[in-house]
Design a protein around this nucleic acid. Structure first.
Lengths: 257, 257
DNA sequence: GTTATACACTTATATAGGGAAGTTTGAAAG
DNA sequence: CTTTCAAACTTCCCTATATAAGTGTATAAC
């Protein structure tokens, strides 16, 4: 439909395919990423200016901006106003680990079950009271669960919930399926936000027995603290899983070709 | 400067400040995030359509799109074409941990030093040869380092490098400061990408001694494998740090107001 | 009653253009 | 030679508009 303007400079790189299902901005982002993967653009190098990219690939400025924004969001380039856009060097500190990669272990698939070991009401000791921001001695629900995955114990979960009949969170949490909702989220969630931390620990005697581990053994401990929409703590607990059964990997630099 | 158009519908929420340094798209993203934090928008709720947001806040469609894209990238909303944009429930699986939060421990600041324990050329055994994709028995550089942070040993680092005089990476790596570049990145980096994984382990006798730890003690192990621009492995190694000195935390849900 | 179509709604993609802000460069003035 | 300043270049931000594509609903035809 549109005339193809005659470019004096031949494009040694790929060009935008207007008939492709992939949007132009995504194609351009891919081309630039490929240039980096091929070594045409090395860390520290300056990318062609936006105006140059507009002319070279025959797209509008907004499309170029969007492509560059994507790369900037992904952290592979950095744009400095007035200077230019540059390729970022790979750095270990840029590594990000997603808890979601352990999703299947937490019972998202078939073959995973939740075994309720214990659920009772106990008074909050000093430690629990501080975490849940309640008075010492107030009632909490203490839950112990074991998550099984393909016939093997995957995680041992302990959790304290504030016991408040006016809050409907209690019922929802007591369902055995609630654990998956905790991990994967559900629309009816009454949780607003939470803090999660990873720790490396040693299994104690009880944990070793439940997880069928030999002592001493290292383990990951995922501690979580969730809040409701009034920013009051609701749930404090931790998942413990054997380190030799967990693999936590990520990539830095160029993700894919 | 611009006339303020008379809106029939009063804005109960905040409005865009055109004189602010903060861009309009960022302000709008903040307003929407605040609405979720205040509970006006609950998980599962549908956001106002883009056209409505355009009218309500007096910005262009592109600005609205960008604001929504930011929220979508952050994972707090999800946009479905033809249906609408919806608030995502909080999920543990959405948690992401950034290695960069340990940056100061890795020697980015003053008061951190790198102690070279050993650096010699050894023949690759079967395990090293497989990781570095070289023949068994080929020469590698084996480095052992101890990272000190404010007078205390923070990490014990061991690393194998391919010994190839044709590759300039060797010299650069042998500098004691190279470690920080490995972590934070530098423009002269010859590394294209890498894989990093976290493991939880027990300190062995040597590690305990160097890290001044009592046995048995749990530790984090950050294993890294870096490749050059020809996709050949260059460096394989791992950092080991005491778990009781490391804190690895993140947030899910609404990050900040 | 069932099916098919049309329409209204949504988000997604793209174009064209303009101005603001920071950086670099080099020429002019001292 | 040094300083000053203006211009060019860069990225950044925003507006206005148009088209495409997916979804759901109401209506018309059968």
């Amino acid at each position: 439909m549109a005339h193809r303007p005659q470019n004096k400079v031949l494009q040694e790189t790929a060009s935008i395919d207007r008939d492709s299902f992939e949007p132009a901005y995504a194609q351009l982002a891919g081309i630039l990423r490929q240039s980096m993967a091929d070594g045409l653009l090395r860390p520290g190098d300056q990318l062609p200016s936006e105006a140059q990219l507009v002319e070279r690939y025959g797209v509008s400025p907004m499309t170029v901006r969007r492509a560059i924004n994507i790369l900037a969001d992904q952290g592979v380039v950095v744009a400095e106003q007035g200077r230019g856009t540059f390729v970022k060097p790979v750095a270990m500190s840029a590594a990000t680990f997603q808890l979601g990669q352990l999703e299947n272990l937490f019972g998202n698939r078939e073959g995973t079950t939740v075994q309720l070991l214990e659920a009772r009401i106990i008074a909050a000791d000093e430690r629990v009271a501080r975490k849940l921001a309640i008075r010492e001695g107030k009632r909490t629900i203490y839950i112990r669960r074991l998550l099984w995955n393909s016939g093997e114990p995957a995680f041992y979960h302990r959790e304290y919930l504030v016991y408040d009949p006016t809050r409907p969170i209690v019922e929802a949490e007591l369902e055995v399926t609630a654990l998956q909702q905790l991990f994967s989220g559900s629309s009816e969630s009454l949780l607003k936000h939470g803090e999660i931390s990873i720790d490396a620990t040693l299994l104690d005697e009880e944990e070793s027995r439940l997880l069928k581990a030999t002592q001493p053994m290292a383990a990951f401990c995922f501690e979580h603290l969730f809040y409701d929409f009034d920013d009051r703590p609701v749930s404090w607990g931790w998942f413990i899983g054997r380190a030799d059964r967990l693999r936590f990997t990520t990539q830095v630099g160029l993700l894919l070709g």
